[in-house]
């Protein structure tokens, strides 16, 4: 598959994520959109990595060159999962405090 397909797909995912973050007020959905963006970037990383080292793979099928990005992505996913737990905890706390998960409600720091 040409790399452009990956790029377009990731761009679409990322844009969906941005738009979601911008327009939705529900904290959970905003959170999910952020995850979406993160994963779009992850996907792109893997794709570029594979593309970059594609020549090495073609000459020697046994090499694992180009798989290092996948390792990174796994790390990122693990860290992201940890983040998610923290983020969800914040959202829960927020719900407890405000009885709402509307992020626009969270402007108490203003003024």
């Amino acid at each position: 598959m040409p790399i452009s397909n990956y790029i377009i797909f990731c761009l679409a995912l990322f844009t969906i994520g941005i738009v979601g973050v911008l327009v939705r007020r529900n904290a959970i959905i905003v959170f999910m959109c952020i995850e979406l963006m993160l994963n779009a970037v992850n996907l792109l990383l893997v794709a570029f990595s594979k593309m970059h080292n594609g020549v090495a793979y073609l000459t020697d099928k046994s090499t694992i060159v180009g798989a290092d990005a996948q390792v990174f992505v796994f790390f990122i996913m693990v860290v992201a999962a940890a983040e998610v737990s923290v983020g969800l905890a914040i959202i829960v706390m927020m719900y407890r405090n405000t009885k709402s998960i509307d992020i626009n409600f969270l402007n108490r720091l203003k003024n």
Partner: peptide, 14 residues
């Protein structure tokens, strides 16, 4: 501009 609305910040960022 510093409205405290997260959305605005992100919009500006974008």
């Amino acid at each position: 501009l510093q409205s405290g609305q997260v959305g605005n910040y992100i919009l500006i960022m974008v």
